[in-house]
């Protein structure tokens, strides 16, 4: 019994040192050496290509908020704009406030509403209304929230349906927008891993260049 205890203590310390600190620190060292940009979060001038942003808050003079850019998943939109209100639980049902705007990082997470939730029906209807008001016939991605709460991507179809809205607010010809969308579309990795997608930040950077 005592010999078990002594060995356990020694082993726990060895594990703490080797599989905790040496592993994580050596990993950080190698990562920073080989892939500095990725290891720091793929940051560029306007944010990270891996982190979705609330594009719906973009000010568009003379037009509704967010209509002069391509928008991402509605993780911060309409009924999901303030999850504290929707999910008042103190334990915080991981809300859609992953990147709190007040300078503190929040938690990533989904709405966790089930497929037969009447709340989900109500919220989805509100989002459909939001898109219709902007002349967009929404796809499923545009009325459903992501799993992380900051999905940076949309599908090609999600971008194409937004063309009427963006064209009206920016005055850019729909054909030009379509060409931009096609050029920004990324095929599934190696042709079969994952799905086809567009990074919304890169798409909007391309759009800003067109303006």
């Amino acid at each position: 019994m005592l010999v078990h205890l002594r060995r356990s203590l020694v082993m726990a310390v060895i594990c703490l040192v080797v599989f905790g600190f040496i592993y994580a620190l050596a990993g950080t060292g190698v990562s920073q050496l080989l892939f500095r940009n990725q290891a720091d979060g793929s940051l560029s001038a306007n944010g990270s290509t891996l982190i979705g942003q609330p594009w719906n808050l973009t000010k568009c003079p003379g037009h509704p908020l967010g209509s002069c850019v391509f928008q991402g998943r509605p993780d911060d939109l309409g009924p999901y704009a303030d999850t504290e209100k929707n999910n008042p639980s103190p334990a915080g049902h991981p809300g859609d406030d992953p990147l709190a705007l007040n300078g503190a990082a929040g938690e990533s997470g989904a709405t966790n509403l089930g497929p037969r939730s009447s709340t989900l029906v109500t919220f989805t209807k509100q989002l459909v209304k939001y898109w219709h008001a902007r002349g967009v016939i929404p796809t499923p991605d545009l009325v459903t929230t992501s799993a992380s709460g900051y999905d940076p991507d949309i599908s090609q179809k999600d971008a194409l349906v937004q063309i009427p809205m963006v064209a009206q607010a920016t005055g850019i010809a729909p054909a030009k927008l379509k060409a931009l969308i096609v050029s920004e579309t990324q095929a599934p990795q190696w042709g079969f891993l994952g799905a086809q997608f567009i990074d919304v930040l890169q798409l909007n950077e391309g759009l800003a260049a067109l303006k």
Binding site: A45, G47, P54, L57, T58, L99, A105
Partner: peptide, 10 residues
Amino acid sequence: DVLNGVTQTM
């Protein structure tokens, strides 16, 4: 992000 005027922390 200057494109949408949003500041975020991750």
